[in-house]
């Protein structure tokens, strides 16, 4: 039986050696840990303190102009839960994050397998797929708003009409189509980048595995599911984590493509945060939203890590 991944556990140090290394190394350990201090200071000042301050503000009516803020308990949290636009923003943000993660992962792996093959102009094709990841999402959103314009003069509608005689489609003016459009543009922009990530991992898979599998009579499909996919699990963990966290923080794309509309259909949490905090001077409310969002991100992030760890164990 072929073992794809072997875990070579190092021999355990003997009791004497271990004791000697600890006794002789306390000073070294202390020095080593001192090197962590700058990172700890940065973490505390740029993460822990702002987080605590944000939580404090979430319990006040802080406006962002007057440093005096009154304690109002959980009123900001209650207002968010009552506001349908906030809940809509939360729902679309989660839909975008999960939707882009699933679709990009499903498309990027087969794409990476193709891009990993030897063919004329391979580097050019790889660059072509990678290119959408280079410009900012804001610029992509503006460009796609012209392409997906629901008017008959929109780029896509004109093309569909000229080639297939199809009437103008309400890409961005129908709630469902607008949500789908934002997700698909997000997928288009990211799939090439993640395919390149998978290509890097594919190149690390020894060709001997495929040669042995071929000798054993494995089909291309069997090779993909029994060799390629299991060995890509670490890449999938990284890719899906980046996609999920990036998706939850999405702002520029929906803001420039649909401005959160029609209605609140494609509104996102980050847009709601900026609108409430900056434009409306309701820092207290925006902080409450940020605290709730942090909790949601933590839950989604840890769940994703748990699932991917389980998958990794299954294949290792």
């Amino acid at each position: 039986m072929l073992t794809l991944v072997s875990r070579n556990s190092p021999a355990a140090p003997s009791g004497n050696r271990r004791r000697r290394s600890i006794e002789g190394g306390w000073k070294q350990i202390t020095i080593n840990r001192a090197f962590l201090l700058p990172a700890v200071v940065v973490f505390v000042f740029l993460f822990i303190i702002p987080l605590a301050q944000g939580f404090y503000w979430s319990l006040t009516d802080f406006t962002g102009y007057n440093p005096e803020a009154n304690f109002i308990g959980m009123a900001n949290y209650a207002e968010i839960l009552r506001d349908p636009s906030m809940l809509s923003a939360l729902a679309f943000t989660v839909l975008f994050a999960v939707g882009t993660t699933v679709i990009v992962t499903c498309l990027a792996i087969p794409l990476a397998v193709q891009l990993n093959k030897v063919f004329l102009g391979r580097n050019f094709v790889r660059s072509l797929w990678f290119f959408p990841a280079v410009p900012s999402m804001a610029i992509l959103g503006l460009v796609w708003s012209y392409i997906l314009s629901p008017l008959p003069s929109g780029v896509l509608n004109t093309t569909l009409n000229n080639w297939f005689g199809i009437d103008a489609v309400s890409w961005l003016s129908d709630n469902s189509l607008a949500r789908m459009s934002v997700i698909l543009v997000g997928v288009w922009a990211q799939v090439g980048w993640h395919a390149v990530l998978y290509v890097a991992y594919l190149q690390a898979i020894p060709t001997e595995y495929y040669e042995v599998a071929k000798i054993d009579g494995a089909s291309a499909r069997q090779q993909f599911f029994s060799i390629t996919l299991p060995l890509l699990t670490p890449a999938m963990v990284i890719s899906s984590f980046l996609l999920l966290t990036g998706g939850l923080k999405v702002f520029e794309l929906p803001y420039t493509l649909t401005n959160g509309g029609p209605g609140f259909a494609t509104n996102t949490i980050t847009q709601a945060l900026i609108t409430s905090g900056v434009s409306q001077g309701r820092y207290g409310l925006a902080s409450a939203l940020a605290v709730m969002f942090t909790i949601v991100v933590a839950i989604v992030g840890f769940s994703q890590l748990k699932v991917t760890t389980m998958i990794s164990r299954r294949f290792s």
Binding site: S145, Y146, S149, P150, L151, S153, A168, S170, W171, L172, S173, A178, T258, N259, G261, P262, G263
Partner: peptide, 16 residues
């Protein structure tokens, strides 16, 4: 008027 106006910004209307 078409309800598609909900997805138009001022620049698109001006270009039309």
């Amino acid at each position: 008027v078409s309800s598609d106006v909900v997805a138009l910004d001022g620049d698109q209307v001006r270009d039309e």
